[in-house]
Amino acid sequence: MTARIGYAPGAYDLFHVGHLNILRHAREHCDHLVAGVVSDEMLERTKGRRPVVPLEERMEIVRHVRYVDQVHAETVPDKLDTWRELRFDVFFKGDDWRGTAKGRDLERRFAEVGVEVVYFPYTMHTSSTALRRALALLEGASEPLAAAR
């Protein structure tokens, strides 16, 4: 029997419990988990902003999560191009994509090559966006807090 390879892409910027939950759930559904860490350039291109933590540091953090077997720098926009390189069997995504046009297109394209798309609950109470907002508030805080950086 061949190992079931899973792929869990993400920015993994400002690593938090939502990221950990995705990786933990993904590992439960495969034998070998590859975490795709999206490059700084790709994040700027797709989200319009650079990450707070640079790619190499994000990869180092994710590499040391016990659920992850392999880390891959994701540098191309098309997930099928990544699949052609890694040949994973299952693709993991937060359920904020489920039912969207992008999610349906991803499912259709992956189905054509035999890849299953599995969604996991999105962690609403913690997100990198919320952490960015908190950091921005701290940036505008009084001198003692700003000096603590």
Rank of each mutant, 00 (worst) to 15 (best):
V17M: 12
R149P: 01
V76Q: 10
G140K: 08
L80P: 02
K79G: 08
T129Q: 04
Q70Y: 15
L106C: 13
L106N: 09
R45M: 10
L55E: 01
T2K: 14
T46A: 07
E57N: 10
M124H: 14
A147S: 12
D89Q: 04
L106T: 15
R24Q: 01
L14I: 10
L33F: 04
H32R: 02
R109S: 06
E56N: 14
R133T: 14
D81F: 00
I5M: 08
G36F: 07
P51H: 10
H125N: 13
A3N: 11
E44V: 09
F92M: 01
D89S: 10
R27G: 00
P51W: 05
H125F: 07
L43K: 00
E57V: 12
R98I: 02
L43Q: 10
D95V: 12
S128D: 03
D105V: 01
E139G: 15
R104F: 05
E143P: 09
R50A: 14
F88D: 05
K79H: 14
G36V: 03
H16L: 07
A35S: 05
A35Q: 00
L86G: 06
T126Y: 12
G94F: 00
T123I: 13
L33M: 01
V65W: 07
G18N: 07
F91D: 11
A73L: 09
R50I: 07
V115F: 08
